[in-house]
């Protein structure tokens, strides 16, 4: 049986994080009711490549290169025992180099790039590895408070081996001066947990004369209590 322990206290942001204004009317006042994990939580959708094709390169759209700094971002998906999570589906989305999303509701007065759509879908391999090619996104203003700009980030959605592992997170970039000012990033109380949301600059992912690289390892809830046994 795969087990999905609850996150350690302080390592996830509280649902009520008043500095992030949108949480105020959207967080539940009742504590959630803990339930034992049943098949409904330990099973997960199987995303077959035929129905959910992978596309790993955001740096080119309709045959044309996007504007901005091309980068490779990669890493591993692991469980809490450090074992690879195989076949996890990663859905990735981000703003363009100017900090503008290809999204109807994004009114930021920064240019759209017709050659940047801003999404990718990849699957972790047997060792948990995944990789994308993209453009380093820009920071953008978001109106949460005076001169509020989100630090540069990429959104990641993960589908693992149990619905209890489902998670959405954001990857940040090292050295960003906006990080200590960002109520979303800072909402996670534990400093080490925040640090793990920041990618590492990593030349191992770089390609000579073509792109720099960043590494972002993602740890999903779960440990393999009896490694030889499948979760079914």
């Amino acid at each position: 049986m795969t087990e999905f322990p609850r996150p350690a206290p302080g390592t996830w942001p509280p649902m009520n994080s008043p500095a992030y204004g949108s949480t105020r009317k959207r967080h539940a006042l009742h504590p959630p009711i803990a339930i034992p994990h049943t098949l409904s939580e330990t099973s997960a959708p199987r995303f077959t490549p035929s129905a959910y094709p992978a596309y790993a390169d955001m740096s080119v759209h309709e045959g044309q290169a996007a504007m901005g700094e091309r980068i490779i971002v990669g890493g591993r998906v692991l469980d809490e025992d450090g074992r690879p999570v195989r076949g996890a589906m990663l859905e990735i989305w981000q703003a363009n180099a100017a900090g503008r999303y290809h999204h109807m509701r994004d009114q930021h007065d920064a240019p759209l790039d017709p050659h940047f759509a801003g999404s990718a879908r990849v699957f972790s391999d047997d060792e948990g590895h995944w990789q994308i090619t993209t453009i380093k996104p820009g920071a953008y203003p978001w109106g949460n408070h005076a001169k509020a700009w989100r630090p540069v980030h990429i959104h990641f959605g993960l589908h693992g081996q149990g619905f209890a592992q489902r998670m959405i997170t954001q990857m940040y970039f090292p050295g960003d001066p906006l990080l200590p000012l960002d109520p979303v990033f800072m909402a996670t109380p534990d400093a080490a947990a925040r640090e793990r949301l920041i990618a590492k600059f990593d030349l191992d992912y770089a390609v000579e004369n073509w792109a720099l690289g960043y590494r972002f390892d993602i740890v999903l809830r779960g440990r393999n209590a009896t490694p030889m046994e499948d979760h079914k």
Binding site: T11, G82, W93, A95, M167, V184, I218, V219
Partner: peptide, 17 residues
């Protein structure tokens, strides 16, 4: 190892819709 923190999906997740 400790799990990666959850972060909000934000208002622009429709890019993957």
């Amino acid at each position: 190892m400790t799990t990666t923190a959850s972060q909000t999906a934000g208002p622009y997740w429709h890019i993957i819709d």
